[in-house]
Amino acid sequence: MTPVLRARALGKMYKQRWALTGCTLDIPAGHVTGLVGPNGAGKSTLLNLAAGMLTPTSGTIEVCGGRPGSGPAQLAKVGFVAQDTPTYPGLTVADHLQLGARLNPGWDDALARHRIKRLALDPARPAGKLSGGQRAQLALTLGIAKRPELLMLDEPVAALDPLARREFLQDLMDAVAEYGLSVVLSSHLIADLERVCDHLIVLVGSKVQVAGEVEDLLAVHHRLSGPRRDLSTLPANQHVISASHTDRQTTLLVRTDDPILDPAWSVGRLSLEDLVLAYLSRPAEPGHDHRPAREVVR
């Protein structure tokens, strides 16, 4: 499948500090991709680069086959709901739909009106008087009714209460089911994304730590627990992501494409959250820890 987003050695520097470095990625089309990482890891930077809000300092990025923000046709292909879902406080809900209709050639007015009706948003209400959840839904409506190939959302649910969060994601998934658009959404909480993502990118310290399809990632990561042992005795094809020891027991989180044969281990399944947390708390790899971005993020 052709990637909907392709980054090669992408980097962005703000005033002497790298917000993103050496980012090489392919996000396949037709997926819901979760972009996970702690605050300041570079998630927003990556999304803003992809939306053309920022220009890269180094490397290249291609979205839906074009350079981000390069023209009206490119902008029409990509929807972006920025962090905190900005809306015009003085304009009404109906005004926002009008705005979308006037500024987007592919605008689906029936879809927008239907959504607003279903969400029970009063069209005459100014956006400044909506709740956070309603504003997010309005911004999402603008993003979906634009009918983009790729919809990106930067921390869309961070400011929402659990119920609004669930409704927002439900609506997003409904749009994915109906229109088959590709979605990239970021969050610093994996729990928000666990159910809805089938592709995952973990970004820590301005670098991509792991990326891939959720099923594949879950299939190659295992939790091993057994009698205490030295890590150097492990087979070469098992990469330790995290390890903890007590005086009798060793618990490992390993990545391997091959089955675990050693009968001394009891092998456990990982939840996506365990997997992500292991990567988030992983100490810097030797040889990689001298990059300037590391200190900044930590």
């Binding site: 819901v32 089911a177 109906e178 159910r195 809805v196 089938d198």
Partner: peptide, 18 residues
Amino acid sequence: TVRDVVAQVTINPNTVLK
């Protein structure tokens, strides 16, 4: 239907399809 499941459990439609 996939959309019903999506609405029921807030899940990625691709997952249901799979």
